[in-house]
Amino acid sequence: MFEPVRIAPSLLSADFMNLGRDVALIEEAGAGFVHVDVMDGHFVPNLTMGVPVVKQLKKATSLPLDVHLMIANPLEQLPWFLDAGADYVTVHAEVLDADGLARALASIHAAGAKAVVSLKPRTGVGALAPVIADVDMVLVMSVEPGFSGQSYIEGSEDKVARVVEMARAVGASPLVQVDGGIGPATAARVAAAGADVLVCGNAVFATPNPAAALAEVARIADEARLAALAAEKEAR
């Protein structure tokens, strides 16, 4: 069954001096999420937004806050972001063992939020095996996390397809999100492979008309998804 692809504009590429304006703009333009990149300077070599920004965003928008924790100690900091109002919380498989991932997902769900696990480009999908049945979304990084404006890593769509296949094999259907170098030139590839949510930074906010850019990426992704579903149906 066809479900439109949702766009999650990344505030890392927004105008921090006019953040409220940019959030209102993407909400009016039809964004599905507000993507909030949290970096700690340890897991990734950059520092960005934190709890105070998430608290203010919660007051400023009705869109779900998709909080991506690129941090070394998520089990310690999860309560902070859950209390601040995060609706979806992403932890990285690279910083937690199977038990830690299970504990993180349980904490997120206990707070009434949606749990997401992210994989860096070099991390295999096997890292998801212990928790694939329990996640609400999987985030496939198509660039190395840490900085906006990077180019899409070729072949990332294959990883998206492997995540979809793994989930189907256990009867699960988490959303699949892709983050990194996503725009008009790459949206079709990941959407055709099974991506449900596309994180877009510069492809939206660095354009003269962010609302039009968002709509164009969504259109391209939806067309690719429809074509892929039609091909799958015909192949049966």
Rank of each mutant, 00 (worst) to 15 (best):
E76I: 02
E76C: 01
E76G: 02
Q77E: 13
Q77M: 08
Q77T: 00
L78D: 06
L78C: 07
L78I: 03
P79S: 09
P79N: 04
P79Y: 08
W80I: 00
W80K: 10
F81P: 03
F81Q: 04
F81A: 01
F81M: 06
L82R: 04
D83Q: 15
D83C: 06
A84Y: 07
G85F: 03
G85L: 12
A86C: 03
A86N: 03
D87Y: 01
D87L: 12
Y88A: 14
Y88L: 15
Y88V: 14
V89R: 01
V89A: 10
V89Y: 01
T90H: 03
V91W: 00
H92P: 10
H92L: 04
H92C: 10
H92A: 11
A93T: 13
A93S: 15
A93M: 09
A93E: 06
A93G: 11
A93C: 08
E94Q: 05
E94C: 11
V95S: 07
V95E: 01
V95F: 07
V95D: 06
D97R: 13
D97N: 15
D97A: 11
A98T: 09
A98R: 13
D99W: 06
D99P: 04
D99G: 14
D99N: 12
G100K: 09
G100Q: 00
G100Y: 14
L101H: 04
A102T: 10
A102P: 06
R103H: 06
R103S: 13
R103W: 04
A106P: 03
A106N: 11
A106S: 15
A106H: 08
S107I: 10
S107E: 15
I108D: 03
I108Y: 02
H109N: 15
H109E: 13
A110E: 15
A110L: 08
A111Y: 06
G112R: 12
G112Q: 13
G112L: 12
A113P: 12
A113E: 09
A113S: 14
A113F: 11
A113H: 13
A113T: 05
K114G: 10
A115D: 04
A115T: 00
A115S: 14
A115L: 01
A115V: 02
V117T: 01
S118Q: 02
S118R: 04
S118W: 02
L119T: 11
L119N: 02
L119F: 05
L119A: 10
K120G: 06
K120V: 15
K120D: 11
K120M: 12
P121V: 08
P121W: 01
P121C: 07
P121F: 12
P121Q: 00
P121A: 01
R122G: 00
T123Y: 00
T123Q: 12
T123P: 02
T123C: 10
G124K: 07
G124Q: 01
V125M: 01
V125H: 00
